[in-house]
Every structure is written in structure tokens, then in C-alpha cells.
Nucleic acid binder design. Structure first.
Length: 287
RNA sequence: GGAGCCGUAGCCAAGUGGCUAAGGCGUGGGUCUGCAACACCCUGAUCACCAGUUCGAAUCUGGUCGGCUCCU
């Protein structure tokens, strides 16, 4: 059995995962693209030692912020951890909001290490699209990043994958935590407010060292504060931007989990979390 | 009581007689086989109300309602 707990940011995944780990003799594998980095603790809402309650956690703090970690690395690391935990007779519990990371780890994505990054070509989107559509007619004609990705592959003679995607394990239980939008948005706002002022220290440390890695340029809570330290925005503007970006992110997460993965949903009951845990157990027992 | 300004989508806002009322933000809905906390797409209007002028009105005129500023 592999349990996957997904859902938007701030919905209570961490809490549920600890409870289930205790019940099912599980160990937790992080499935969050930011929490793999060392030092990105507050902004990514990483579990604290106290919150872990002695449950073993994997794939947290495994890379330095200046290094780039991608879906390829996650696929490899996560599969290794699943095997390791299963071999020890325990239940792997994957927890996180990075949908593509989970899908890559658990589905038959055919990834291999790429030494070089995609290069920019002096071509318009339309020109790229005209080449790429021959191999992948479904590609989004406006999405330059994905067009470039496909174009680079074509230039390097790497075939564009088109085999059917399916899970590589047959014992995955997908649990999705959700709550109504109003409550969730309130939770997100509260969570962001509580990150301050500590988050400022966390980020200024990296800013002073002039680190501009992928993680810091893309993670919510970090990229916004860089604009504050760069004096492009006031702190107040940054905070509301962090909240806004978190809300947008939560919305995209819902969409991804709803449509890309066979998730069984349950509601978070903030007043009686034991009820949420029981609901989760019921879903697991039925599977 | 008098004078002036204003009323366009949830918010901001362009348009001041003529194609189908710009745009931004938010909201909602999506896409996804390698940067995924990424990138991208879709989404809305009895132009305050009523009457008039006109071939044609958000735009001009009158009235009503509402708001703001100033004067007494």
C-alpha cells in the first residue's frame, strides 16, 4: 500500500499525514518541490521537529538552495524511498502539493538526466509551434516555455514521449484534502501573516549572499521578498502578493489533482480533526 | 437653500454621437509527458433610472435618484 495525501496549500495535509503514519506504521515522503531545499523552512511551511511527533520523514532538506532539483531527481529519489520503506515492512505515505512531482514518481514518465539546460532560440512562438506541432499537435501554441522544451528535444533528437501514461504501482491510494474556498483562503492569509517577521530573516540571509537560484526565484514567499529587499516593493505589498500568489496556487492545485490524478476527496474538519482522520481511514479501508 | 463635479462589470478604468462598450485587477473555470510554488488559455456589462432629440445615444437635452466638493 502507498498512501498519497494531496490537496492545496494550508489545508492540513501535514497533520493528517502524521496521524495516518501512526495508525498504519508509515513513514512520510515529502512531495513538495520547495521543501526539498535546505533552509527554505518558514516560507514553505515545512514540518517542524515537534510536529513530526517522531515519525520518520524523507526527502526534506536534501539539496542546497543554490542547486537545481527537478522532476527527474524527484522521480528517482522518491521511487528509491518507496522501495526502501516497503522493504522495511512499512507503509510509504507521500504528502505534498506538487502534483507533477507525484505524477512523475508514480506514473511511467520516461525521464533521463539532462546535462544541459534548454537553450533559447531566436524564433517566434509561431515558428516554434510550426515545428513542434508535427510531433505534438496538442502543444499550447502560446506557451513559450513548453514550446522551447519540445523544440530543444527535437534539436537534440530526443523523441517526444507519447506512450500512454499509467501508474507503475497498483496499490496507490490517493487521498485529497479539501475545504470550501472561503475557509481555505482565510487559512492561507493567516498562515502567511504568521510567517512574519521570521520569514524576513530567512530570506534576507539568502539575499545577502546574493543567491539567485531557481528555488528562490520561483518559490512563493521568497521571490516576493526579494523584490522587497531590492526596494522594488514595500513589505506590505509583498505580503499581500504572497497571499495572492498562494491563493492562485491553491486553485491550480485543485485543478491538477481533480483532473490529472484519481483522487478520492475528503473535507478537512478544522473543529474536529479526528473526524477527518476517521474519514481518511474509511476511504483507505474501502480501497 | 445655492453652485459645481460625478455615476460604465465585484474593484479600478478608457471611451465624450456611428463596427460587436478598450484594458488592468480580482473572481470562477481549465491545460499539462522535464524549470511545476513553473508556464499558458478561457471567463463577465440592460453604460444609475425615466423621458426626449437623432437614421443612430454610454456619449447631446430635461427630469428623478445617489455620491462628492464648495458657497450661504
Amino acid at each position: 500500500m502507498i498512501i498519497c495525501i494531496v490537496g492545496p496549500t494550508a489545508v492540513g495535509k501535514t497533520k493528517l499525514s502524521i496521524a495516518l503514519a501512526k495508525i498504519y506504521n508509515g513513514e512520510i515522503i515529502n512531495a513538495d518541490s520547495v521543501q526539498v531545499y535546505k533552509g527554505l523552512d518558514i516560507g514553505s511551511a515545512k514540518v517542524t521537529e515537534a510536529e513530526k511527533e517522531g515519525i520518520k520523514h524523507h526527502l526534506l532538506d536534501i539539496v542546497d538552495v543554490q542547486d537545481d532539483y527537478t522532476i527527474y531527481h524527484y522521480q528517482k529519489d522518491c521511487r528509491a524511498k518507496i522501495k526502501e520503506i516497503k522493504d522495511s515492512g512499512k507503509v510509504p505515505i507521500l504528502v505534498g502539493g506538487s502534483g507533477l512531482y507525484l505524477k512523475a514518481a508514480l506514473y511511467n514518465y520516461n525521464l533521463s538526466e539532462e546535462k544541459t539546460k534548454d537553450i533559447e532560440y531566436d524564433l517566434t512562438n509561431e515558428q516554434l509551434y510550426n515545428v513542434v506541432k508535427e510531433k505534438n499537435p496538442n502543444i499550447d501554441a502560446n506557451n513559450r516555455r513548453r514550446l522551447l522544451r519540445a523544440y530543444n528535444k527535437i534539436q537534440k533528437n530526443i523523441p517526444l514521449e507519447n506512450q500512454e501514461l499509467k501508474p507503475i504501482y497498483d496499490d496507490i491510494i490517493w487521498l485529497g484534502l479539501k475545504t470550501d474556498h472561503e475557509t481555505l483562503y482565510q487559512k492561507i492569509n493567516d498562515r502567511v501573516d504568521k510567517m512574519f517577521p521570521d520569514l524576513i530573516d530567512e530570506v534576507s540571509n539568502f539575499y545577502k549572499q546574493n543567491i539567485n537560484s531557481k528555488a528562490l526565484k520561483t518559490a512563493i514567499g521568497y521571490k516576493e521578498l526579494y523584490a522587497y529587499f531590492g526596494q522594488e516593493k514595500t513589505l506590505e505589498e509583498c505580503i499581500s502578493l504572497i497571499k495572492k500568489n498562494s491563493r492562485h496556487y491553491a486553485k491550480r492545485q485543485y485543478t491538477f489533482f481533480r483532473h490529472q490524478l484519481p483522487v478520492k476527496w475528503l473535507n478537512t474538519d478544522y473543529n474536529d480533526f479526528q473526524k477527518t482522520i476517521n474519514d481518511a481511514i474509511n476511504l483507505i479501508e474501502k480501497s
